[in-house]
Amino acid sequence: MGRVEAKVALVTGGGAAPGLGSAIAARLAEEGATVFVSDIDQASAEARAAEIRDGGGKASAIRHDVTSERDWDEVIGAIARAEGGIDIVINNAGIVSAETIDKLTPEDFTRVIDVNLKSVYLGTRRAVAEMRRGSRSGSIINISSVAALVAHAGLAAYSASKAGVLLFTKSVAMETAREKIRVNSVHPGMIWTTMQQASFQRSPGSLEAAAATIPMGELGEPRDIANCVLFLASEEARYITGAAFVVDGGMTMR
């Protein structure tokens, strides 16, 4: 216990359950962080924050459109005023568009890039500015995907956005390393989230087929990603920046 004790953390896209953001927020709170759960659906963010408080953790909810620069200014500003600064930012919010190139419209492509990549730029930019203002070290963790590393048919927009997150993360890490502001990315494989469940419901029998392609033989759990994020947020990872952590049961080693 206490691996991020007294740290202040923001987790975007934290409303869905089961989801990566909600699991990350809960795990950070378990280890002592004061957590702000943000989501465009405020009711779901409130529900997740209440669950954390019911478990003895410290959490608040914020409505947050991650594609809005104004929202980022308001969210980070409110947290800094309430807590004196911010130590950990998890850029987790994201969407998927599973369309082949002939069906992928410019509007769909732009929307995926805005939510998955532009939001990471906006959040990282605002977080770095606040950490610099407060002369604090910090940890920024951007949730990417194995789709940034290997190709998948029908995921051109998603893969482009997540590959952008990978190199964006490394570039910013180069800029902030001397200030001890660490910036890393996490690349989940197939994880049992609400988004993944919806995908399998549309294709009966695909769950078993998908699990068979994973060397470890099963999908991951949101807590598997949360544990990796916790490590990167903690002082145990004080000498790690610009790194890409793959949590995929072996999918990408083939």
Rank of each mutant, 00 (worst) to 15 (best):
Met1Ala: 15
Arg3Lys: 13
Val8Glu: 01
Thr12Glu: 13
Thr12Asn: 13
Gly13Met: 01
Gly14His: 10
Ala17Gln: 15
Gly19Ile: 08
Ala26Lys: 12
Arg27Gly: 04
Leu28Ile: 01
Glu31Gly: 08
Glu31Pro: 04
Gly32Tyr: 05
Gly32Thr: 07
Thr34Ile: 05
Phe36Met: 14
Val37Leu: 12
Ser38Trp: 08
Ser38Ile: 04
Asp41Lys: 12
Ala47Leu: 03
Ala49Arg: 03
Ala49Tyr: 02
Ile52Val: 06
Lys58Asp: 14
Ser60Leu: 14
Ala61Val: 08
Arg63Ser: 13
Thr67Glu: 11
Ser68Gly: 09
Val75Ile: 11
Gly77Trp: 11
Gly84His: 09
Ile86Trp: 09
Gly94Thr: 08
Ala98Met: 04
Ala98Leu: 06
Ile101Lys: 07
Lys103Gln: 14
Leu104Thr: 05
Leu104Val: 06
Asp114Ile: 02
Leu117Val: 04
Leu117Ser: 01
Ser119Asp: 02
Tyr121Arg: 05
Tyr121Gln: 05
Ala129Phe: 07
Arg133Ser: 08
Ser135Gln: 15
Ser135Pro: 00
Arg136Thr: 15
Gly138Pro: 01
Ile143Glu: 02
Ser144Cys: 06
Ser145Tyr: 04
Ala148Asp: 01
Val150Tyr: 03
Leu155Asp: 10
Ala157Ile: 06
Tyr158Glu: 02
Ser159Gly: 10
Ser161Cys: 04
Ala163Cys: 00
Ala163Gly: 13
Gly164Arg: 14
Lys170Pro: 00
Ser171Met: 08
Glu179Lys: 07
Ile181Asp: 00
Ile181Val: 07
Ser185Cys: 14
His187Ile: 02
Pro188Lys: 06
Met190Phe: 15
Thr193Ile: 09
Met195Ala: 14
Ala198Ser: 15
Ser203Phe: 13
Ser203Val: 12
Ser203His: 15
Pro204Lys: 08
Leu207Arg: 13
Ile214Asn: 06
Met216Thr: 07
Leu219Glu: 07
Gly220Cys: 08
Glu221Trp: 09
Glu221Ser: 06
Arg223Leu: 14
Ala226Asn: 07
Val229Ala: 10
Ala233Val: 01
Ser234Gln: 04
Tyr239Lys: 09
Ile240Met: 13
Ala243Cys: 03
Phe245Gly: 05
Asp248Gln: 02
Gly249Ile: 00
Gly250Lys: 09
Thr252Asp: 01
Met253Phe: 12
Arg254Ile: 09
